[in-house]
């Protein structure tokens, strides 16, 4: 499989004429499939995500959204097809810390304070980095500065259980940013939060996206959230998991919460609702 990935990644490079050195896409899937035994979780996915894009993924429960993120992040292998992350294999991208993952449950380590949790990625994979003879990428911002960046100044030494769900998720985001990822994979990161907190964190995430230039792939169940954040919404369908449609969202670059009351926004929302309803 790995060999195939590599050869396809190279072949992908041949597609672009050598005269114009286009940057490789952040994510490229070529008819990638994932099977869990008899279950076809993902069936022949073709997807290209450009460097710096903000993509949201919508779809019915069980259609393979999490599996797609886990495929990209080298947690599950493809059972067929090929893929590349910034022109490399997923494994190489993982070893180089090209991407970071944010889970729905913040997945903080309860025995570490907020700032110690943010520091975790710098303490793990050291052996691997040494073996490869390279240093782990590190954000120019210190863990403390990253916590301030996500609005948690003064709570650096709090234990996770002392933080609200939204605060825990912000720590998880700061932790994801510590290795300066080029790709941020987020699986329903705000799914368990109340609407006000979610709105606030959405704006903060847009701010992070703008300031860092990171590519974001964001899975959600909320149609308004998907439209508000995305440049493109990827609508999936289930059984087998596949991409139904990709809808570019043509809203002003600077997103505001009030946009949700505009006719254009609601047209997108209605379109997506219809797609989601009609299986």
């Amino acid at each position: 499989m790995r060999v195939m990935q590599k050869s396809r990644a190279k072949a992908g490079g041949d597609d672009a004429p050598p005269a114009i050195a286009l940057p490789p896409p952040a994510v490229a899937l070529y008819s990638a499939s994932v099977d869990f035994g008899a279950v076809k979780a993902l069936n022949q996915i073709d997807l290209r995500i450009e460097d710096g894009e903000f993509i949201t993924i919508l779809g019915p429960s069980g259609c393979g959204k999490s599996t797609l993120l886990r495929l990209i992040s080298d947690l599950v292998p493809p059972s067929a097809g090929a893929m590349s992350i910034f022109g490399d294999s997923t494994e190489a991208a993982r070893l180089a810390r090209q991407f970071a993952f944010v889970f729905q449950s913040a997945a903080l380590l309860p025995w570490r304070t907020a700032v110690q949790n943010v520091r975790l990625p710098l303490e793990m994979g050291k052996k691997m980095a040494k073996k490869q003879g390279r240093a782990l990428p590190v954000s120019a911002q210190s863990p403390e500065e990253l916590l301030e960046f996500v609005g948690l100044k003064g709570r650096e030494n709090a234990w996770p259980h002392e933080l609200s769900g939204g605060m825990q998720q912000r720590v998880a985001i700061a932790r994801a940013l510590i290795c300066k990822p080029k790709l941020l994979l987020m699986d329903e990161p705000f799914g368990a939060l109340d609407e006000m907190t979610r709105d606030h964190l959405n704006l903060q995430l847009l701010d992070i996206w703008k300031k860092t230039g990171v590519t974001i792939v964001f899975v959600t169940h909320s149609i308004p959230e998907a439209v508000l954040l995305a440049q493109k919404v990827v609508m999936m369908k289930s059984q087998p998991g596949a991409i139904k449609k990709i809808i570019p969202i043509d809203l002003p670059a600077k997103r505001k919460l009030e946009m949700r009351d505009t006719a254009k926004f609601n047209k997108y929302a209605a379109q997506l609702r219809k797609l989601l309803g009609a299986h």
Binding site: A100, F103, A107
Partner: peptide, 26 residues
């Protein structure tokens, strides 16, 4: 939790790092 173990895998953690930083403290 499975998430902690997936996080460790994404961070390319070694067996001893997983043991000392995740399994043992938990």
């Amino acid at each position: 939790t499975p998430q902690m173990m997936e996080l460790a895998r994404i961070l390319s953690a070694s067996h001893s790092e997983i043991f000392w930083k995740i399994r043992f403290p938990s």
